[in-house]
Protein backbone atom coordinates (compact mmCIF):
# COMPACT_ATOMS: atom_id res chain seq x y z
CA UNK A 1 0.00 0.00 0.00
CA UNK A 2 1.43 3.44 -0.83
CA UNK A 3 2.48 5.62 2.09
CA UNK A 4 0.17 8.20 3.63
CA UNK A 5 -0.26 10.13 6.85
CA UNK A 6 -3.24 9.62 9.10
CA UNK A 7 -4.82 12.26 11.31
CA UNK A 8 -6.95 11.14 14.22
CA UNK A 9 -9.26 13.98 15.38
CA UNK A 10 -11.34 13.32 18.47
CA UNK A 11 -14.06 15.93 17.93
CA UNK A 12 -15.93 17.41 14.99
CA UNK A 13 -14.53 20.94 15.43
CA UNK A 14 -11.03 19.48 15.50
CA UNK A 15 -11.76 17.55 12.33
CA UNK A 16 -13.15 20.61 10.57
CA UNK A 17 -10.12 22.60 11.57
CA UNK A 18 -7.81 19.94 10.17
CA UNK A 19 -9.80 19.95 6.95
CA UNK A 20 -9.77 23.73 6.81
CA UNK A 21 -6.01 23.78 7.18
CA UNK A 22 -5.06 20.90 4.95
CA UNK A 23 -7.70 20.46 2.23
CA UNK A 24 -7.40 19.36 -0.54
CA UNK A 25 -4.58 17.04 0.55
CA UNK A 26 -6.65 15.57 3.35
CA UNK A 27 -9.23 12.87 2.62
CA UNK A 28 -11.77 11.82 5.25
CA UNK A 29 -11.75 8.12 6.07
CA UNK A 30 -14.61 6.37 7.83
CA UNK A 31 -15.15 2.61 7.57
CA UNK A 32 -12.37 2.28 5.03
CA UNK A 33 -14.21 -0.25 2.93
CA UNK A 34 -13.65 1.85 -0.19
CA UNK A 35 -10.61 3.97 0.61
CA UNK A 36 -8.43 1.06 1.73
CA UNK A 37 -9.50 -0.96 -1.29
CA UNK A 38 -8.63 1.91 -3.66
CA UNK A 39 -5.20 2.17 -2.10
CA UNK A 40 -4.69 -1.57 -2.48
CA UNK A 41 -5.74 -1.37 -6.12
CA UNK A 42 -3.54 1.70 -6.56
CA UNK A 43 -6.58 3.47 -7.97
CA UNK A 44 -5.95 6.46 -5.72
CA UNK A 45 -2.93 7.62 -3.80
CA UNK A 46 -3.76 9.69 -0.73
CA UNK A 47 -1.33 12.08 0.86
CA UNK A 48 -3.22 12.32 4.10
CA UNK A 49 -6.25 10.63 5.57
CA UNK A 50 -8.39 11.72 8.49
CA UNK A 51 -10.12 9.10 10.59
CA UNK A 52 -13.76 9.89 11.37
CA UNK A 53 -14.62 6.86 13.45
CA UNK A 54 -13.98 8.62 16.76
CA UNK A 55 -16.24 11.60 16.13
CA UNK A 56 -19.29 11.00 18.30
CA UNK A 57 -21.04 13.89 16.55
CA UNK A 58 -21.32 11.77 13.41
CA UNK A 59 -23.15 8.91 15.09
CA UNK A 60 -26.75 8.34 15.98
CA UNK A 61 -30.24 8.62 14.52
CA UNK A 62 -32.80 11.14 15.73
CA UNK A 63 -36.14 12.75 14.86
CA UNK A 64 -36.07 16.46 14.31
CA UNK A 65 -38.76 18.77 12.89
CA UNK A 66 -40.63 16.07 11.01
CA UNK A 67 -37.36 14.71 9.67
CA UNK A 68 -35.15 11.80 10.46
CA UNK A 69 -31.51 12.80 10.87
CA UNK A 70 -28.82 10.21 10.50
CA UNK A 71 -25.20 10.73 11.50
CA UNK A 72 -22.97 10.18 8.51
CA UNK A 73 -20.76 7.66 10.34
CA UNK A 74 -23.74 5.42 11.05
CA UNK A 75 -22.71 1.99 9.81
CA UNK A 76 -24.79 -0.01 7.37
CA UNK A 77 -25.17 -2.65 10.07
CA UNK A 78 -26.67 -0.08 12.44
CA UNK A 79 -29.37 0.68 9.85
CA UNK A 80 -30.53 -2.89 10.27
CA UNK A 81 -31.06 -2.65 14.01
CA UNK A 82 -32.12 0.93 14.61
CA UNK A 83 -35.84 1.20 15.51
CA UNK A 84 -36.22 4.70 14.04
CA UNK A 85 -34.81 3.50 10.73
CA UNK A 86 -37.17 0.54 10.82
CA UNK A 87 -40.08 2.93 11.20
CA UNK A 88 -39.08 5.84 9.00
CA UNK A 89 -36.41 4.48 6.68
CA UNK A 90 -37.68 1.10 5.59
CA UNK A 91 -36.21 1.48 2.11
CA UNK A 92 -32.79 2.29 3.44
CA UNK A 93 -33.06 -0.74 5.66
CA UNK A 94 -33.93 -2.90 2.65
CA UNK A 95 -30.83 -1.64 0.88
CA UNK A 96 -28.71 -2.24 3.98
CA UNK A 97 -29.86 -5.84 4.16
CA UNK A 98 -28.37 -6.58 0.73
CA UNK A 99 -25.37 -4.26 1.04
CA UNK A 100 -22.09 -6.18 0.57
CA UNK A 101 -21.60 -8.64 3.45
CA UNK A 102 -22.23 -8.47 7.22
CA UNK A 103 -18.48 -8.05 7.79
CA UNK A 104 -18.37 -5.03 5.49
CA UNK A 105 -21.64 -3.62 6.90
CA UNK A 106 -20.04 -3.40 10.33
CA UNK A 107 -17.49 -0.94 8.96
CA UNK A 108 -19.05 0.74 5.93
CA UNK A 109 -20.95 3.95 6.71
CA UNK A 110 -23.83 5.69 5.00
CA UNK A 111 -21.78 8.86 4.63
CA UNK A 112 -18.89 6.93 3.15
CA UNK A 113 -21.15 5.23 0.66
CA UNK A 114 -22.49 8.61 -0.49
CA UNK A 115 -19.19 10.47 -0.60
CA UNK A 116 -17.62 7.61 -2.51
CA UNK A 117 -20.29 8.29 -5.12
CA UNK A 118 -20.17 5.02 -6.92
CA UNK A 119 -22.97 4.83 -9.51
CA UNK A 120 -23.84 1.51 -7.83
CA UNK A 121 -23.93 2.86 -4.24
CA UNK A 122 -26.77 0.91 -2.66
CA UNK A 123 -27.82 3.56 -0.13
CA UNK A 124 -28.28 6.21 -2.81
CA UNK A 125 -31.52 5.10 -4.56
CA UNK A 126 -33.47 4.84 -1.27
CA UNK A 127 -32.21 8.23 -0.11
CA UNK A 128 -33.05 9.77 -3.50
CA UNK A 129 -36.65 8.61 -3.36
CA UNK A 130 -36.98 9.63 0.27
CA UNK A 131 -36.07 13.19 -0.81
CA UNK A 132 -33.08 13.20 1.47
CA UNK A 133 -30.59 15.99 1.87
CA UNK A 134 -27.02 15.77 2.99
CA UNK A 135 -25.53 18.22 5.45
CA UNK A 136 -22.02 19.41 4.73
CA UNK A 137 -20.11 21.13 7.49
CA UNK A 138 -16.98 23.22 7.36
CA UNK A 139 -15.44 25.81 9.62
CA UNK A 140 -17.60 28.33 7.75
CA UNK A 141 -20.83 26.62 8.65
CA UNK A 142 -23.27 24.01 7.49
CA UNK A 143 -25.07 23.74 4.18
CA UNK A 144 -27.67 21.32 2.93
CA UNK A 145 -27.61 19.78 -0.52
CA UNK A 146 -30.44 17.69 -1.94
CA UNK A 147 -29.41 14.10 -2.64
CA UNK A 148 -30.19 14.47 -6.31
CA UNK A 149 -27.63 17.24 -6.63
CA UNK A 150 -24.99 15.85 -4.31
CA UNK A 151 -23.51 13.19 -6.55
CA UNK A 152 -22.34 14.63 -9.83
CA UNK A 153 -20.38 11.85 -11.47
CA UNK A 154 -18.38 8.68 -10.91
CA UNK A 155 -16.71 9.22 -7.51
CA UNK A 156 -17.54 12.92 -7.69
CA UNK A 157 -19.76 14.96 -5.38
CA UNK A 158 -20.44 18.59 -4.52
CA UNK A 159 -18.52 18.21 -1.29
CA UNK A 160 -15.77 20.79 -1.18
CA UNK A 161 -12.39 19.58 0.05
CA UNK A 162 -12.75 21.48 3.32
CA UNK A 163 -16.23 20.11 3.97
CA UNK A 164 -17.32 17.04 5.83
CA UNK A 165 -20.55 15.17 5.24
CA UNK A 166 -21.94 15.16 8.76
CA UNK A 167 -25.51 13.96 8.41
CA UNK A 168 -28.27 12.85 6.11
CA UNK A 169 -31.87 13.91 6.68
CA UNK A 170 -35.20 13.16 5.10
CA UNK A 171 -38.82 14.05 5.81
CA UNK A 172 -40.69 11.29 7.63
CA UNK A 173 -42.56 9.32 4.97
CA UNK A 174 -46.27 10.14 4.62
CA UNK A 175 -48.78 7.68 5.98
CA UNK A 176 -50.27 6.66 2.65
CA UNK A 177 -46.93 5.99 1.08
CA UNK A 178 -45.00 2.86 0.30
CA UNK A 179 -41.88 1.92 -1.55
CA UNK A 180 -39.13 -0.57 -1.99
CA UNK A 181 -35.55 -1.20 -3.02
CA UNK A 182 -34.31 -3.99 -5.22
CA UNK A 183 -31.07 -4.93 -6.88
CA UNK A 184 -29.72 -7.44 -9.35
CA UNK A 185 -26.26 -8.88 -8.86
CA UNK A 186 -24.26 -11.72 -10.33
CA UNK A 187 -24.65 -13.80 -7.19
CA UNK A 188 -26.87 -13.73 -4.15
CA UNK A 189 -24.46 -12.91 -1.34
CA UNK A 190 -21.91 -10.12 -0.95
CA UNK A 191 -22.34 -8.64 -4.38
CA UNK A 192 -22.11 -5.35 -6.23
CA UNK A 193 -25.27 -4.14 -7.97
CA UNK A 194 -25.49 -4.61 -11.72
CA UNK A 195 -28.67 -2.56 -11.52
CA UNK A 196 -30.55 -1.22 -8.53
CA UNK A 197 -33.78 0.69 -8.12
CA UNK A 198 -35.91 2.30 -5.44
CA UNK A 199 -39.42 3.70 -5.65
CA UNK A 200 -41.63 5.60 -3.28
CA UNK A 201 -45.25 6.41 -4.07
CA UNK A 202 -47.91 8.25 -2.13
CA UNK A 203 -51.63 7.95 -2.76
CA UNK A 204 -54.20 10.64 -2.13
CA UNK A 205 -57.47 10.06 -0.34
CA UNK A 206 -59.07 8.83 -3.54
CA UNK A 207 -56.37 6.26 -4.13
CA UNK A 208 -54.75 8.20 -6.94
CA UNK A 209 -51.02 8.67 -7.07
CA UNK A 210 -50.21 11.90 -5.31
CA UNK A 211 -46.47 11.71 -5.71
CA UNK A 212 -44.02 9.22 -7.06
CA UNK A 213 -40.28 9.04 -6.95
CA UNK A 214 -38.10 6.55 -8.79
CA UNK A 215 -34.32 6.25 -8.42
CA UNK A 216 -31.93 4.03 -10.29
CA UNK A 217 -28.41 2.81 -9.56
CA UNK A 218 -25.55 1.57 -11.77
CA UNK A 219 -27.17 2.88 -14.95
CA UNK A 220 -25.52 6.29 -15.32
CA UNK A 221 -22.45 8.11 -14.07
CA UNK A 222 -24.34 8.61 -10.81
CA UNK A 223 -27.49 7.27 -9.16
CA UNK A 224 -30.35 9.14 -10.84
CA UNK A 225 -34.03 9.96 -10.57
CA UNK A 226 -36.40 8.99 -13.40
CA UNK A 227 -38.42 12.22 -13.43
CA UNK A 228 -40.30 11.57 -16.66
CA UNK A 229 -41.60 8.30 -15.33
CA UNK A 230 -42.54 9.88 -12.01
CA UNK A 231 -44.53 12.62 -13.69
CA UNK A 232 -46.83 10.36 -15.65
CA UNK A 233 -47.83 8.54 -12.49
CA UNK A 234 -49.04 11.62 -10.63
CA UNK A 235 -52.81 11.94 -10.52
CA UNK A 236 -53.32 8.47 -11.95
CA UNK A 237 -54.61 5.28 -10.38
CA UNK A 238 -51.63 2.93 -9.98
CA UNK A 239 -52.82 0.35 -12.48
CA UNK A 240 -50.67 -2.10 -14.48
CA UNK A 241 -50.84 -0.11 -17.71
CA UNK A 242 -49.46 3.10 -16.25
CA UNK A 243 -46.95 1.19 -14.15
CA UNK A 244 -45.67 -0.54 -17.30
CA UNK A 245 -45.34 2.83 -18.96
CA UNK A 246 -43.40 4.19 -15.98
CA UNK A 247 -41.05 1.21 -16.27
CA UNK A 248 -40.50 1.93 -19.96
CA UNK A 249 -39.93 5.63 -19.38
CA UNK A 250 -37.46 4.84 -16.61
CA UNK A 251 -35.52 2.62 -19.00
CA UNK A 252 -35.44 5.45 -21.52
CA UNK A 253 -33.97 7.80 -18.91
CA UNK A 254 -30.84 5.80 -18.19
CA UNK A 255 -27.41 5.88 -19.82
CA UNK A 256 -25.76 2.67 -18.73
CA UNK A 257 -22.41 1.31 -19.87
CA UNK A 258 -21.09 -2.13 -20.79
CA UNK A 259 -18.70 -3.55 -18.22
CA UNK A 260 -17.61 -6.92 -16.86
CA UNK A 261 -20.81 -7.21 -14.84
CA UNK A 262 -23.30 -6.63 -17.63
CA UNK A 263 -24.13 -4.88 -20.85
CA UNK A 264 -25.82 -1.51 -21.19
CA UNK A 265 -28.72 -3.19 -22.92
CA UNK A 266 -29.27 -5.66 -20.08
CA UNK A 267 -29.12 -2.89 -17.53
CA UNK A 268 -31.64 -0.82 -19.42
CA UNK A 269 -34.03 -3.72 -19.63
CA UNK A 270 -33.65 -4.54 -15.96
CA UNK A 271 -34.56 -0.97 -15.05
CA UNK A 272 -37.90 -1.55 -16.68
CA UNK A 273 -38.44 -4.82 -14.82
CA UNK A 274 -37.32 -3.57 -11.41
CA UNK A 275 -39.31 -0.34 -11.61
CA UNK A 276 -42.45 -2.16 -12.72
CA UNK A 277 -42.13 -4.73 -9.95
CA UNK A 278 -41.38 -2.18 -7.25
CA UNK A 279 -44.26 0.07 -8.29
CA UNK A 280 -46.73 -2.82 -8.42
CA UNK A 281 -45.72 -3.98 -4.99
CA UNK A 282 -45.83 -0.47 -3.53
CA UNK A 283 -49.26 0.19 -5.08
CA UNK A 284 -50.61 -2.91 -3.38
CA UNK A 285 -49.02 -2.09 -0.06
CA UNK A 286 -50.84 1.19 0.39
CA UNK A 287 -54.12 0.23 1.94
CA UNK A 288 -57.01 2.08 0.24
CA UNK A 289 -59.27 4.21 2.39
CA UNK A 290 -62.29 2.44 3.85
Amino acid sequence: MPEFDLLMPQTLPEALEMLGDRAPDLTPLAGGTNVIVYMREDRHRYKMLMDLTRLNELHGVRREDGHLVLGSATTIAELLTDPLIAEHGALLRQAAAVFASPLVRNRATVGGNLVDASPAADTAPPLLVMNAEVELASQKGVRRVPMDEFMVGVNETLRQPEELLVSIRWPLPATRSAGGFSKIGLRKGAVCSVVSAAVMVEKDEDGLCQSARIALGAVATRPIRAYAAEEILVGQPLKPQIIDLAGQLSAETVKPIDDIRGSADYRRRMVEVLVRRLLSRAAQEIVPRE
Binding site: T33, I36, V37, R40, A77, S101, L103, V104, N106
Partner: peptide, 23 residues
Protein backbone atom coordinates in the same frame (compact mmCIF):
# COMPACT_ATOMS: atom_id res chain seq x y z
CA UNK B 1 -6.95 -7.82 1.53
CA UNK B 2 -10.06 -6.26 -0.01
CA UNK B 3 -12.86 -7.44 2.23
CA UNK B 4 -14.07 -9.98 -0.29
CA UNK B 5 -13.26 -13.23 1.52
CA UNK B 6 -13.58 -12.81 5.30
CA UNK B 7 -10.52 -14.96 6.11
CA UNK B 8 -9.12 -12.11 8.23
CA UNK B 9 -12.29 -11.54 10.26
CA UNK B 10 -11.89 -10.62 13.92
CA UNK B 11 -14.20 -9.23 16.56
CA UNK B 12 -13.35 -5.56 16.98
CA UNK B 13 -15.05 -4.32 20.15
CA UNK B 14 -17.52 -7.16 19.72
CA UNK B 15 -18.29 -6.57 16.04
CA UNK B 16 -17.13 -8.90 13.29
CA UNK B 17 -15.04 -7.00 10.75
CA UNK B 18 -12.52 -7.68 8.01
CA UNK B 19 -9.25 -6.75 9.69
CA UNK B 20 -7.77 -5.97 6.26
CA UNK B 21 -10.16 -3.02 5.96
CA UNK B 22 -9.27 -1.46 9.31
CA UNK B 23 -6.17 0.66 9.75
Amino acid sequence: EKGDCGACAVLLNGKAVNSCLVL
